[in-house]
Write a protein that binds this DNA or RNA. Structure first.
Length: 499
RNA sequence: GCCCCCAUCGUCUAGUGGCCUAGGAUACCAGGUUUUCAUCCUGGCGGCAGGGGUUCGAAUCCCCUUGGGGGUGCCA
């Protein structure tokens, strides 16, 4: 007998889901919703489910679904159930659940809670236009509500493919969304109309499928963007029509672009897709940390957290009601912090593709001089907002030295005693054996002491002479990395400018 | 148009009637870390949208106005 004892996760009955539609690149707003769902599930020992809402046949693609998986995995947002990993409540792709939806559509049809509508798009447009012209709400007028059998047959014979509409309650009723974040939000059924629940191609609409799935998957908390709040009463009406209890709702405020509109390609942000941040060399933990603070705050003033710390501190009642502008400047600060803290090898691996693209290194150099490259990366990582920026900081280590501004360099060199400074520097560095950073620093300080100049007339010319630039990383580190031969060669090259 | 949500420094936020002459972070500015850029440290600038109430007392509660956002699809 082989009894295996394995540690069972003690799951609560909290079940949340992230339900993106694969109709485009996953962006910051979506992933923030995913994150908050994930955080809540982790905090409450619940289950996090990934469901793909691909009922828009026109725009959904498997490529976009792959991108969703990829970016979530990159960020470490793993899911307990859903596409790819399976689970007891599958399938987790709506396009594979059509039979299930049909069952409930039939039920509503039979109970006269839904009906076929044969109106064409043109008729609908006209209807809306007319309503608007008369200053009325552009609602469906219920034209097909009471079609006779013969009328239906006639329309079908004419080739009309019907949609199914949900029949609103006859008498006005107040639908209350009990929202964890927003509080009780009331809607009058008057402002709704008989909305479509099944499209003419036989595929259910979002508002219908989401109800069926959330119920059947036993979702306990629907945590989603505020853009869904106005649609929630429709969904609640469906829950009621089916005699189901509603899950708890939590509508997260929007993330806005710098122009204060919903974050999108058009809202003024250079980058709105998760992949763009990954590709520029943002660290997942930085993005997670930053996003977690968009709409949520811990009880104290801390801001830098590991993911576990965020989970421990996370709580729904510390989620804000108001929307938040995505401030890439603060993300940069946070990301640069994580770049400094990260394991060097990790940053090197991230940096290599950019260094290759920039033409600085190739596979041969990487395998032969990884240690040398490591020193460079370690030295310049402090000045990076994101790893892609590294190419702007490493040119001083590769190839021929180039003067950023030759005139300025010459002007600097022509100051009194600078020729002496450079000559002395060249001679002493040529004589120096130990090129470790410590040794170089010690020697440079010694040289400065022996010369009749102050620091400003020493380090600045020296930097120009060795790197061709007026600013850069700590000079003694640069010299150490460059090595004796290259350093001396460069100083001589610079000396030629004033001889 | 109609419905809904929101409203504290430029930005992210703390704040749930007195502890607030409003705290932190970022950004920005200045000084320091005896060279520059960056890092780091210290300091500074900067805000309760407006108007009415309620109350002994309001950033906090209520109303109105204004502003912003979202929804109003056979998109999700």
């Amino acid at each position: 007998m082989n009894l295996k004892y394995r540690k069972e996760k003690t799951m609560s009955n909290i079940r949340v889901r992230f339900a993106p539609s694969p109709t485009g690149q996953i962006h910051i707003g979506n992933i923030r919703t995913a994150l908050f769902n994930w955080l809540y599930a982790k905090k409450e020992d619940g289950s996090f489910i990934l469901r793909i809402e691909d009922t828009d046949k026109e725009r959904s693609t498997t490529e976009f679904e792959e991108i969703i998986h990829r970016e979530m995995e990159w960020l470490g947002l793993d899911w307990d159930e859903g596409v790819k990993v399976g689970g007891d409540y599958g399938p987790y792709r709506q396009s594979e659940r059509l039979d299930t939806y049909e069952e409930y559509v039939e039920k509503l049809l039979e109970e006269d809670k839904a009906y076929y509508c044969y109106c064409t798009e043109d008729e609908l447009d006209e209807m809306r236009e007319r309503a608007k012209a008369q200053g009325e709400a552009p609602k469906y007028n219920g034209k097909c509500r009471e079609l006779s059998i013969s009328e239906k047959e006639e329309l079908e014979a004419a080739g009309r493919e019907p949609v199914v509409r949900f029949k609103l309650p006859e008498k006005e009723e107040t639908v209350v969304v009990k929202d964890i974040i927003k509080g009780d939000v009331e809607f009058s059924s008057e402002v709704l109309d008989d909305f479509v629940i099944v499209k003419s191609d036989g595929i259910p609409t979002y508002n219908f499928a989401v109800v069926i799935d959330d119920h059947l998957m036993e979702i306990s908390h629907v945590i989603r963007g505020e853009d869904h709040l106005s649609n929630t009463p429709k969904q609640i009406l469906i829950y009621e029509a089916l005699n189901w209890d509603t899950p708890k709702f939590a509508h997260l405020s929007m993330i806005l672009g710098s122009d204060k509109s919903k974050l999108s390609k058009r809202s003024g942000e250079a980058y709105v897709y998760v992949s763009q941040y990954r590709k520029r060399g943002y660290l997942p933990e930085a993005l997670i940390n930053f996003l977690s603070l968009l709409g949520w705050s811990p009880e104290n003033d801390e801001e830098i957290f590991t993911i576990d710390e965020i989970v421990n501190r996370f709580s729904m009642d510390r989620v804000t009601k108001s929307s938040a502008v995505f401030d890439v400047e603060k993300l940069n600060w946070m990301n640069s912090h994580y770049i400094k803290e990260a394991d060097l090898d990790r940053i090197i691996d991230l940096a290599i593709p950019y260094l290759k693209d920039g033409g600085y290194v190739d596979d041969e150099l990487i395998s032969e001089k990884r240690e040398w490259i490591a020193k460079i990366v370690d030295l310049v990582r402090d000045s990076l907002d994101y790893v892609a920026q590294i190419v702007d900081h490493v040119d001083i280590f590769f190839g021929e030295m180039e003067y950023e501004d030759k005139e300025e360099v010459i002007e600097c060199f022509q100051q009194e005693d600078v020729d002496l400074v450079l000559e002395t520097l060249r001679d002493r560095l040529r004589a120096l054996e130990d090129y470790s950073p410590e040794s170089v620093l010690e020697e440079m300080r010694a040289i400065l002491k022996d010369l009749p100049v102050g620091g400003r007339l020493f380090f600045h010319p020296a930097r120009y002479a060795i790197t061709g630039k007026g600013s850069g990383p700590e000079l003694y580190h640069v010299v150490s990395i460059l090595g004796k031969e290259e350093t001396v060669k460069r100083i001589e090259q610079s000396l030629d400018l004033i001889s």
